[in-house]
Amino acid sequence: MSSRSGLTIMRVCFIIFLLGVLVELCDGGITSGYVRGSNLPDDMPLDSDVFTIPPGPNTPQQVHVTQGNHEGNGVIISWVTPVRPGSNTVRYWYENAQSKKQADATINTYRFFNYTSGYIHHCNIDNLEVRLFKNF
């Protein structure tokens, strides 16, 4: 064995030793006293009706509505169409309003190895009227 390979082995051993010492010295502590209960309900069965594909050849699936900005007067509406891009227009209006507004969505897909996603639509709607209800 040459002195160079012996030196390399010694360095590797020293690094492993150092990592072992660091692991022993580190203590992440406890972040919370919460422990998940053992009396949890069973998972939703895979044959539940909520997992059925909606009828129609290109019906929107996986529809999500999320908060669209920090002020709370916007939403993001997202949905997936499986076969081809669907309509990218979202129509919306105020309750009892005569005129209707519309917003256009962007459409994307992605690929990973042999997987290709459906057509993912994202529509941002801003400047919505915020109504605060004091009495329900």
Rank of each mutant, 00 (worst) to 15 (best):
S48T: 04
S38F: 04
V12S: 09
H70W: 11
C123K: 01
W79A: 05
P60K: 02
D43Y: 09
K134Q: 10
M10P: 00
N73C: 00
N127I: 02
P82D: 07
D43A: 07
V21C: 14
S32M: 08
V130P: 03
I77S: 12
R91A: 12
R36F: 15
I77M: 13
I16R: 07
E24F: 11
V35R: 06
K100T: 14
R36C: 09
I107S: 03
I9F: 09
N108P: 00
P57W: 02
S5H: 12
R131Y: 07
V83E: 13
N108M: 14
T81K: 02
E24K: 15
G20D: 01
I76C: 12
I30P: 03
G56L: 06
I76S: 08
Q102W: 06
V63Q: 07
F14E: 06
S99V: 08
N58A: 08
N108T: 11
V75I: 13
C13S: 09
R11Q: 05
G33T: 12
L22G: 03
Y34M: 02
M1F: 11
S5T: 10
I125K: 01
P82W: 04
E95F: 15
V12W: 10
L18N: 05
A97T: 02
F17K: 10
V23N: 06
D126I: 01
E24L: 15
F51G: 01
T8K: 11
P82G: 02
G33W: 09
D42W: 06
D126V: 02
C123E: 02
Y115N: 08
S117V: 09
V35H: 07
P85N: 07
P82F: 01
V75M: 10
D126P: 00
V21K: 14
